[in-house]
Design a protein around this nucleic acid. Sequence first.
RNA 1: GCCCACGUAGCUCAGUCGGUAGAGCGCGUCCUUGGUAAGGACGAGGUCACCGGUUCGAAUCCGGUCGUGGGCUCCA
Length: 574
Amino acid sequence: MAEHDLHAMRHSAAHIMAAAVQELHPDAKFDIGPATDEGFYYDFDMAHRLGPEDLKAIERAMKKMIGRRLPFERREMTREEAQAFFAARGQSYKLERLADIPAGETISVYQCGDFADLCRGPHVGHTGEVGSVKLLTVAGSYFRGDERNPMLQRIYGTAFPSPAELADHLRRIEEARKRDHRRLGSELELFSTHEAIGPGLICWHPAGARVRHVIETFWRDAHYANGYELLYTPHLGRATLWQTSGHLEFYREAMYSAMQVDEQDYYVKPMNCPFHIQVYQNRPRSYRELPLRWAELGTVYRYEKGGVLHGLMRVRGFTQDDAHIICTPGQIEDEICEVLRFSLFLWDAFGFREVKAYLATRPPKAVGEPERWEQALASLQHAVRRAGLDCEVDEGGGAFYGPKIDLKIKDAIGRQWQTTTIQFDFNLPERFDMTYIGPDGRRHRPYMVHRALLGSLERFFGILVEHYGGAFPTWLAPEQVRVLPISEPFLDYARAVAGTLRAAGVRVSADTEADTIGAKIRRARNQRLPYMLVVGEREAASGEVSVRSRAGEEGSVSLDAFLARVRAEIEARG
RNA sequence: GCCCACGUAGCUCAGUCGGUAGAGCGCGUCCUUGGUAAGGACGAGGUCACCGGUUCGAAUCCGGUCGUGGGCUCCA
């Protein structure tokens, strides 16, 4: 089915749902009910609070309507007729939506059964053309998405041409649920949160910490190898610092309240930049030492509203893979190109091959000289072009302090994640009066660029877990190899094999439980281990190991041969 | 923050009409010593998230708190 036909069908399904709601709850007021990529929704306002039980009744009423093959009838109205029409029905949200329609545009109403809706269309001919529908969830939603507006009730549903396609979609939802990082995080003992500690605050367990350590080590080495220096800065800073930076003025609601130290206010950091700037300000800087590229795995704390917290994806304490690039105007373009190239290198290393760029330009209210915005934007555009990236432009979507470029990566099941952000900042250099001495002996204002490539380690780890479904590639796996002795007489050989591998830097253990070999294999597979080495009488006698990878049995090789293979794989980040 | 739902053993979940709590997995002990996805027996483990109310009696009903989940313009 063509995209627009599917869209029309789902939009029609939304109308049918609204009609069913009107029938069951005559006092309902209607807002809007569009089709989405995955299905459709409709927003209602009514006295009755919808719960899961209501969905069944509404779905039944919808199916009845679908069976009756009721026509969708289009009527065009003048603005005045439409106003009178919806006013007579007490549909106040519709009147507001009507007022949004620009003058001169055609106003149409679609009627289906007893339900009439302000709607541009198009729709299917009659309700019988809507295939298999299923209502999924009920949720709250502010009118126009603004929390100052009344809270409406939203029902999400989906529709497909055939029952088989609907079943397939539900299966995909189930697949995504299986690789949910929260589920895998607890199954594989990667991380946890605790009521006693507080929401949005993550504890990394040994297995998760191992993976994080590998990521961090790779990240640090890569930064040193690519011209960065690393910084460590404190978690707290005086109120005066945050006044100078402007955070207390513009970012306060996301900061935790002050704590008093020696009768002075200190704040836990929501960002690392003011600290990096202090390091810069430590002495006068010459143009000869620019560009400076200073990176830090900086742990920051931000207040996020309770309702938006989500596993590792949205948390209150997290570690950014932050860096600040301070350079001269002449250096800026090469620097941006280099950041993009470096970012793509990291994504490739972690197994993400599809990356898309999103460029955000100057908003109406902005700080900084127009020439600087121009140059910044040009350097971003050139960099994107040189990197050969697909790019979408969001005109006026930049922050007030500078333009930015974000990268989105696509994971193994096609979902996009916003990760890398590269942002110019024309604000902080001014606020802190950052300067460098140029060849002319005068003070000049440097460019400053913030960039986080992975984003935050917590969120990136969550994405990584879902991307691989918990089955990390060998170089990242918390435990790379497990030695499985067939029975007790071979425990010593198993320990010796594990010892050899461990001495060679492999993350390995020996399963010395008194279980059958089948049970040991099952356990290791459930923990998504890349390699199992089965050892018994034959292997102990020959000094070999029987290799079992995720693909299955691979036969026996000498321990040396296996070690060489695993080392090569780890080296190649496979 | 707001709307809706959920919170029972470490995990996944059952628990009828209000009458003092159950399974599987996991964990412990013992038996079994095995050849590529679960060997067997026995046992321990619960302030039913927390606080309050209704009741002779609350996991169950009501209110509050905390936590978790789905969602909060893919623009008629």
